[in-house]
Design a protein around this nucleic acid. Structure first.
Lengths: 150, 150
DNA sequence: TTACATTAGTTGACACCGTCAACCAATACT
DNA sequence: AGTATTGGTTGACGGTGTCAACTAATGTAA
């Protein structure tokens, strides 16, 4: 049983490496690094996300977040808009071009996953999905526990 | 069904992020970055691995590999040894200290996974393991196909 | 044996990237 | 009004991987 955990860890490690910075997602798409993609996705999925929100959602300092938004802005994927209710905060709406690039990346990677798994039984595919959902749920719960204990 | 693939992709993305450079493994252990850990692990698991072997196993150029080995060497985790049969190649044996740090990291992360999953039924844990093995097997097969088609 | 080609590894210059600390401007507190 | 706080930006910096040029060892062929 103990051994199962270490197997799972090493499998996770391998998966993470493959889908991380240095694997298929290193190039990600056109002109986005993985970090930039994650930031863009965060902005895309959360209306009125501020720069610091984006930073903390990807574990960066606020100056790091500023720099990433700089890059995304010069690439035309987001805009900076001062909040009307509070002149300090910057909201970062995603432009049409940004939304387009996001969905393009997601589509491409979804296709990749489909290629990977196409030969499996529907049942097996579902099992994979369920297994990963359980894992991620456990991960998130753990995060909450850790953040409380600080 | 199509939708399952996109779900799985996004779950994979999340997992990879969590276990990647910026998540729990960003700090990895003591004084190793994730990249360094992967290189050290590659050297550890393969006897007589050369510097370029290590580089290609983590998708780096040979000069990148040299730099990583530099760091691992100054930290005392590997040694450089010219091959006796070919004076050009460097083998990179892992020192005792290196082996120790590797097993320490693996242990720590195994514990983390155990913490995550301890409340699950043994059956569920096994399912997770099986699901991930299938995924990785598919991944590797795909890699081979891709490398052949180049 | 000499001359040329190839291969493993190293190094200097460089560009990219995220952090830190100092800073500015807007808002909140009293 | 005056001070403290907060969101965001910027300059300086250190860390890191690449590229191209290099050295040294090996292979090849006359």
């Amino acid at each position: 049983m103990k051994n199962s955990f270490s197997d799972i860890y090493s499998l996770l490690q391998e998966l993470a490496w493959h889908f991380g910075d240095h694997g298929i997602n290193g190039e990600c798409c056109e002109d986005l690094s993985l970090v930039e993609f994650m930031a863009l996705k965060a902005a895309y999925e959360n209306d009125n996300f501020t720069i610091q929100d984006i930073g903390s959602s990807i574990n960066f300092t606020k100056s790091g977040a500023t720099r990433i938004i700089d890059r995304l802005e010069t690439k035309g994927y987001v805009k900076r808009e001062r909040s009307l209710s509070d002149g300090r905060v910057c909201c970062v709406p995603v432009t049409d071009k940004g939304a387009q690039v996001i969905s393009q990346i997601i589509k491409k990677n979804t296709n990749y996953v489909e290629e990977l798994l196409q030969d499996l039984e529907p049942q097996a595919i579902d099992n994979i999905k369920i297994a990963m959902e359980i894992l991620i749920k456990a991960m998130k719960r753990q995060d909450i526990i850790k953040s409380k204990s600080l």
